[in-house]
């Protein structure tokens, strides 16, 4: 019996992984172009009618707008908090630095349903439950570890003498931070910011707990429709999601270059 060459085995594994990774996307993409009334794959015929329906749907548009708003709030709150936390941890030899690091990464280890209920109780107590902005804050809180990681990766790659060099060139501390430290960690900040944005845009569980009928975000709205009847417009909405995520990646590549992101240690 002739053994398969290692090259062929390798190619087969890579091929399988690529298909497995792309399959859900391809299925949903195909299904969204169907002509029929059922969400099926392969699609029956080709039409853009479900896109038309999605784009015409006022409730989906509103939900999309709310998700966008939540993402913006999450990014605006999470970027400075995460970036400063990461810089602080890396730059100052804080006491309990290890404990602090674990504490800041804690949201990651708690099941979303638990933090969601906790946040729901908290926002209910201070009487803001049902408004939209707390959803953004909640997303920032639970996704903060991603931001901290992204910036830490950038900071740890920095030469510690960079700030000394700026001071030596005559830059006072604030100038040093603005003209050297911040630009040098910018790739990490942008990466983290885009991750925060996309995660908040996609966030389902916490949104479900914190929103009501008037403030549903896009994922919650989709979930609500699945419970009644599954029509291809859901596939079309999902494609909108994929496009948003794709745009984020393109943006990342344009601004910082994907190789910076992939290289970050």
């Amino acid at each position: 019996m002739k053994l398969l060459s290692p090259r062929a085995v390798f190619a087969a594994i890579v091929g399988f992984n690529l298909v497995a990774l792309a399959l859900p996307t391809l299925v949903i993409l195909g299904a969204s172009f169907t002509e029929g009334n059922m969400i099926v794959f392969p699609p029956e015929g080709f039409s853009l009618r479900w896109y038309e329906k999605v784009l015409g749907s006022e409730s989906l548009q509103e939900a999309f707008g709310r998700s966008l708003w939540v993402s913006l709030i999450c990014t605006a709150a999470g970027v400075p908090a995460g970036a400063l936390a990461a810089l602080g941890m890396a730059r100052f030899r804080l006491r309990f630095s290890g404990v602090l690091q674990i504490y800041l990464l804690l949201p990651f280890t708690i099941p979303l349903i638990a933090s969601g209920i906790g946040l729901m109780l908290f926002f209910g107590e201070i009487g803001v439950l049902g408004e939209l902005w707390p959803v953004g804050i909640a997303c920032a809180v639970i996704n903060l570890p991603f931001m901290i990681w992204a910036v830490l990766a950038s900071v740890n790659g920095l030469d510690p003498d960079l700030e000394n060099a700026a001071a030596n060139c005559g830059a006072p501390p604030v100038q040093t931070f603005l003209t050297v430290t911040l630009p040098a960690v910018m790739p990490g900040v942008i990466t983290g910011g885009l991750i925060l944005f996309v995660l908040a845009f996609n966030e389902f569980l916490v949104s479900l707990l914190l929103t009501d009928a008037h403030t549903v975000t896009l994922p919650v709205s989709i979930y609500n429709s699945i419970r009644s009847i599954i029509t291809p417009d859901l596939a079309a909405v999902s494609v909108v999601y994929i496009v948003v995520a794709g745009l984020a990646i393109v943006l990342l590549d344009r601004i910082v270059g994907l190789e910076v992101f992939l290289r970050s240690k």
Partner: peptide, 20 residues
């Protein structure tokens, strides 16, 4: 006198040039 007020130029071991 803080670092930035001293009239001293320095060439660092790992150069510490500003990468951006």
């Amino acid at each position: 006198m803080p670092v930035h007020k001293r009239s001293i130029g320095m060439v660092f071991q790992r150069l510490a040039l500003f990468p951006h």
